[in-house]
Amino acid sequence: MIEFEGVSFVHPTGVKALDGVTLKVGGGETVAVVGENGAGKTTLVKHVTGLLKPSKGRVLVDGVATTATTTAELSRKVGVAFQNPDHQLFSESVEAEMAFALRNFGFSEELVERRVAWGLELFGLTEYRASSPLVLSGGEKKRLTLACILAWDPQVVILDEPTVGQDALQKERLAETIRMLTSTGKTILVVSHDIEFLWPIQPRVVVMKSGKVVGDGRAAEVMAQKGLLESARVAQPQLVSFHGALRSRPTSPFVDPAEARRWIAGERR
């Protein structure tokens, strides 16, 4: 679905934001991109939407090179919820905000109405239908931006720091939504620092550092590599580090007895 083939990107200021990234994301996969600030995560996902074009290498979305198409055309397949919802809300009502992209894509008015109603219902925003999006709370604005994207049913959904400004309950609902989208076969890319949010979703985890992919694998595998996470300044999920701590202290009833015996034998020696 998405292929990065030796992609490098140099900003006009001369900063190398991506350095030879090769990555393949299959259809229906949920991938979390993690790494410290400035690691190149947002630059990476901006290549998927064609907002940025690679300085070297190429990016393919559904077999089409992003250099051969426009962002507006690509956005029919790729929906992005940017970090700051205030950067996209402008309409006079929540309803009009949701309909904006649908009309840009030429959906019929009947379909626009159906999709808007579906999105508002899904994200609990129906009561704000006629309100200005600018008066919503931070969490509601975030939900609205996500609803706006899902309304046109893109194949790929990109969430850039979706948990910023969200309370615990909203995070839980967001995780539910991601699981729901995964079950409907959507390809999801989540850029996040919030490891505790990502852990229960159990995505494929791509670790980035200085514009390079330094780790890639199942969440359980990658999150267990403390050294790798530390080098990329990513915190280990509490559950994983707690598990690690339990494993090194065989006083817990969860530890395999045979393992405990071996540990005791080692200690005695």
Binding site: K46, L51, R76, Q88, N104, F105
Partner: peptide, 13 residues
Amino acid sequence: MQIMDAQKSRGLE
């Protein structure tokens, strides 16, 4: 720039 990116991603030409 960021706003333009966001709106282009919603099909704005």
